[in-house]
């Protein structure tokens, strides 16, 4: 049986790998991680969030600046710059991003373990996670210019 701390560490690696896969395959952006706390001050304009349950249960929250969210959605869906990007389209893209990210990360963590994903949400501004201090954080720059942050808050394990 893997100790919970090791499982958390593996999950952080899985989220990072899944995020890089999405960027590479579907969004065509490059992520450069920074040491948590070293991210330049950023105004996060959009949040997407999804809860999951299984061997690990918790919540994944991704924070985007306005520019990143728009470029993310345009690249994901294939909407050219200059063409209208409606808020509803952008938010749907961020919801789907959270869905794919959590699903892929959990599949990488434990390919044979069943997990249940709840419906993702996305909205303007920031949605505070259940715990204001996440269990782990991944943050860095997208395409070298725009800050981005992913927080994971895990529920206490039943045996804890």
């Amino acid at each position: 049986m893997i100790p919970m701390n090791a499982l958390h560490s593996q999950f952080k690696d899985s989220v990072t790998t899944a995020f890089e896969e999405i960027l590479d395959k579907m969004v065509f952006m490059v992520f450069e991680p920074v040491t948590p706390g070293d991210l330049p001050p950023a105004e996060f304009a959009y949040t997407s969030q999804i809860a999951f349950t299984g061997k690990l249960s918790g919540r994944l929250s991704a924070y985007f600046t306005r520019a990143t969210a728009e470029e993310f959605a345009r690249n994901l869906i294939g909407i050219r710059r200059g063409d209208v990007l409606h808020d509803s389209t952008l938010e749907d893209a961020l919801r789907e991003f959270a869905n794919i990210l959590a699903g892929r990360a959990l599949a990488l963590l434990a390919p044979t373990e069943p997990y249940n994903l709840q419906l993702p949400v996305a909205q303007r501004g920031t949605i505070l996670p259940a715990s204001s201090s996440p269990d782990f954080r991944i943050e860095g720059m997208l395409n070298e210019i725009e800050p981005c942050r992913i927080d994971i808050s895990l529920n206490p394990s039943p045996s804890a």
Binding site: I100, A102, G103, R104, L106, A107, P111, T112, P114, Y115
Partner: peptide, 8 residues
């Protein structure tokens, strides 16, 4: 299509 489906 799926992001989560295991082998089973």
């Amino acid at each position: 299509l799926s992001s989560t489906a295991d082998q089973q």
